[in-house]
């Protein structure tokens, strides 16, 4: 603090403070405006929005998905995938793809939420498809977590692991961890079946069931780990491996010390 106090009258401090204040204001504004609200989804279908979305699509997506979203050798057709699929892929940064691979990884989103919604509106205008879930649809506050757990274990746990940590599929593909998935993303993923995930449509898994699953996943995300070092919550295999390596190494070290000749 003393060092800080000594420099506070330095001429450059005014500039530093200004930049700091700008950064804080901008950051807060960014955080406050990132989460899409139901008001945003209501805008899908607006004509200017569709045109703006088409412009963005032609710039960023058409090289793989085709000029009219008809698909090609590099990417599937987007006709009929719906606004929900576009929002899921673009908002989680999976699209646009940085490099071809077994699967599109999550990365920082390139487009703003407004641009994402514009592209979603454009794709939705081509053919009917699953719409972006409304705020009421993803409202899980009244959902039964226990029921969600049962449905999660029947429908999701086989790939995403019982604690939502994700797991391996074939040939380099994988089911991602759900620990940072938002309720909207979870809903959209079930609705649209991104990558190799099968579709869990509202007809076979109705909205209340999806809400219960979301409630369960959110509960998993918030579950505390009082002992620390949860080892990915992968269960006894990983815990056993940890014991047989780290803990046994420590025990062997202690045994060696006990047996060492005193000097």
């Amino acid at each position: 603090m003393k060092a800080l106090a000594a420099h506070r009258r330095h001429p450059i401090m005014g500039l530093v403070l200004l930049l700091l204040a700008l950064g804080v204001v901008g950051g807060v504004y960014g955080v406050a405006t990132t989460a899409p609200s139901s008001a945003d989804t209501a805008l899908v279908g607006d004509q200017t929005q569709i045109e703006e979305g088409r412009r963005l699509y032609l710039e960023g997506c058409s090289s793989c998905h085709g000029l009219n979203a008809e698909g090609g050798s590099a990417g599937p057709t987007l006709i009929g995938v719906g606004a929900a699929a576009v929002h899921f892929q673009v908002a989680t940064g999976r699209m646009p793809l940085a490099a071809p691979g077994a699967q599109a990884p999550v990365k920082d989103a390139i487009y703003t939420s407004e641009e994402t919604l514009q592209m979603a509106a454009y794709i939705a205008s081509l053919a009917p498809g699953p719409a972006i879930p409304t705020a009421e649809q993803i409202d899980y506050t009244d959902a039964d977590i226990a029921e969600g757990g049962v449905l999660f274990r029947i429908n999701c746990a086989q790939c995403h692991q019982a604690a939502g940590q994700g797991g391996a599929l074939t040939q380099g593909k994988y089911a991602p961890s759900l620990m940072s998935a938002t309720p909207q993303e979870i809903y959209e993923a079930m609705l649209t079946g991104p990558q190799n995930m099968p579709i869990f449509a509202d007809t076979t898994l109705p909205t209340p069931d999806k809400q219960a699953i979301i409630a369960y996943v959110v509960d998993l995300q918030q579950a505390p780990s009082p002992g620390g070092l949860s080892l990915g919550r992968l269960g006894p295999v990983v815990e056993g491996l940890f014991l047989w390596t780290a803990v046994f190494a420590a025990l062997i070290g202690a045994a060696v010390w006990i047996g060492m000749r005193a000097r």
Partner: peptide
């Protein structure tokens, strides 16, 4: 049949 979309999975 219509309940299950192409790409769908039901246990």
């Amino acid at each position: 049949p219509a309940d299950i979309p192409v790409g769908g999975l039901v246990s």
